[in-house]
Design a binder for these strands. Structure first.
Lengths: 129, 129
DNA sequence: TTCCTTGCAAATCGTTTGCATAATG
DNA sequence: CATTATGCAAACGATTTGCAAGGAA
């Protein structure tokens, strides 16, 4: 069984992520949590981020930049990465699960899902062009 | 300017990747190239993989497993990752670039493209279930 | 008191880089 | 000869882990 105990640090990490929409990396979480817990260690931050994402309370995003991003919004949605400023934004759009069927029609195994993110220029970078 | 010089090692790496359809990682390339070049270093392998992918002769794939995979097939196609045996397979299917338009319709910035891979069970693992 | 969690530091892992030497054009 | 490429080893950045001490049930 799970055998999970409460910890103020874990709670703070989750709360912090819920206030952010920019999908912070572990060290951004670390830097911010340190204001409340000056002695917290990066290891603890990682341990909790891993634990929370394993339990489905967080999403751990792999966006191709070599760093993991975390998102407390676990509802189905997509992500956008700006090629210029590297911002990560939410993309609310109808689900595209039909691509799984399409893929399945061309594949002998079983498609369970897909992993997609979009890239291009974010709204502010478009203006700055 | 490019100023690119021929190297037997680079050529061998590219040739090797062209014989493989399983999208090897850098150390798999290294292990195999070592049969022909026992003294080649992992650094050289990485340098050439990076160089070749920067020039568009290779694809460097980020599939969420923390390791980069390389593909000498640069034609447009998708990839499938088996959740069970972690095989990476090609997925030939009609392009789904329409999802970019869909995303664009729900986003204020400019969508230039998307990054997608599928996951589930590969044909052999489906049988083994 | 039991077991989970923490802080700290050291360890891993994949990948990159500096440097002196070798190979290419 | 001017440059690029190589091998080696050290450096890196992100993430994980071992361990002794602290906190929750």
């Amino acid at each position: 069984m799970a055998g999970l105990k409460y910890s103020r640090q874990r709670e703070a990490i989750l709360q912090f992520l819920m206030t952010r929409k920019d999908h912070p990396t572990a060290d951004v979480v670390y830097a911010n949590i340190r204001e409340e817990f000056p002695n917290i260690s990066l290891g603890t931050v990682y341990r909790n981020l891993t634990l929370l994402s394993d339990r489905g309370q967080l999403l751990r995003l792999h966006l191709g930049d070599g760093v993991d991003h975390f998102d407390a919004d676990t509802s189905p949605h997509y992500h956008f990465v700006c090629e210029r400023c590297h911002a990560v934004l939410d993309l609310e759009m109808p689900d595209i699960d039909s691509i799984d069927k399409l893929a399945g029609a061309h594949f002998a195994g079983k498609i369970k899902g897909h992993c997609t993110h979009f890239y291009g220029l974010c709204p502010s970078c478009v203006k700055a062009e």
